[in-house]
């Protein structure tokens, strides 16, 4: 089996997730070639062919040129599997590749069984086992589902691709998240509010528990999107990644994007009315309770 692994770079830096497809290829015992639009000063460490194009020439968001370059490499390498990360780069690009090749795509792969891929469904409450027809398949991997145990090592054989500059997309730069606010990564205790708090007024009971514990309060994406909490308090893949000594998730169902930001916490308590909520997968303790009753009771007990 031959694979083409699509690595990722942003602002001239290789993204660490680039090694996840490599681990996947190793685990299924496949040969690997890599493709990267990035910077020559930060190439992936691995022994094999690297098809490379300079980020500054291709443009930071130019999916049609990324696609054209990948098709050129596919034509040469003839891989059976084309592997990307299920990231903002990967989920944008993968369907373009699949459509151009008229082949199937399997999204957000977390494992494989009997020659088929396993993907999550319904907020990870279910899994689908998916088979692709045809000789070639495009897959994207769930962030964190695969990863090298050891430091990546090796030196690739670089083949440089020539770039066509034309694009329908005008890239107008990046916007950083607002500066300032809270640095949750420094907190030893974080009490986070999720959609389950129901209304913005209930953030106060989460804040009160955080205060009595001497910690900070955080929030999941829906709470920040609703403007109930500022963005600097957001925990997850589009917010902060934290690993406090104690993380208390209040009314957070446990979407993968949230788990990515907190699952390395030393001790995790989840409070949720849904006994099957996926947060239970990472929680050391799941308290099945209505947080509007439980949190004030816990706060009062700790104060007393």
């Amino acid at each position: 089996m031959k694979t083409l692994l699509i690595a990722e770079s942003r602002q001239g830096k290789l993204l660490p997730g680039s090694y996840e497809p490599l681990d996947f290829a190793n685990k299924i015992g496949a040969e690997a070639a890599m493709f990267l639009v990035g910077s020559e000063s930060d190439l992936p460490h691995f022994d094999g062919s690297l098809y490379f194009a300079e980020e500054s020439e291709v443009g930071e968001y130019n999916p049609e040129e990324h696609l054209r370059l990948i098709l050129e490499v596919v034509d040469k390498e003839k891989p059976q599997l084309i592997v990307l990360s299920h990231s903002s780069y990967g989920w944008d690009l993968a369907p373009r590749i699949a459509l151009a090749l008229q082949v199937g795509q399997i999204s957000e792969v977390v494992g494989y069984q009997d020659g088929a891929m396993v993907v999550p469904a319904c907020n990870s409450k279910l899994q689908r086992v998916v088979q692709a027809q045809g000789e070639v398949t495009v897959v994207t991997l769930q962030s964190g589902a695969f990863g090298l145990d050891d430091e990546p090592a090796g030196t690739p054989t670089v083949e440089k691709l020539s770039v066509q500059a034309d694009s329908k997309f005008e890239f107008h730069g990046y916007e950083e998240a607002e500066e300032g606010g809270v640095d949750l990564t420094k907190a030893e205790i974080i009490v986070s509010a999720g959609r389950g708090i129901g209304k913005p007024e209930n953030l106060a009971i989460v804040e009160a528990l955080a205060k009595v514990l001497g910690g900070e309060y955080g929030a999941s994406r829906p709470v920040v999107d609703s403007d109930w909490a500022e963005h600097s308090r957001q925990v997850g893949s589009t917010g902060q990644t934290v690993a406090p000594k104690l993380y208390i998730a209040c009314g957070i169902s446990g979407a993968i994007q949230h788990l990515a930001g907190m699952k390395k916490s030393e001790f995790i308590v989840a409070i949720n009315t849904d006994r099957d909520a996926p947060i239970g997968e990472v929680a050391d303790v799941l308290v099945v309770a209505d947080l509007k009753q439980f949190l004030p009771a816990l706060t009062a007990r700790l104060e007393g």
């Binding site: 699949a98 082949v103 199937g104 279910l126 998916v130 692709a132 045809g134 997968e281 303790v285 799941l286």
Partner: peptide, 16 residues
């Protein structure tokens, strides 16, 4: 181009 062979409940890993 792809078909679902089966749908299943994920193995519970968290021994919480």
């Amino acid at each position: 181009l792809t078909t679902t062979a089966a749908t299943q409940f994920p193995e519970k890993k968290g021994g919480g």
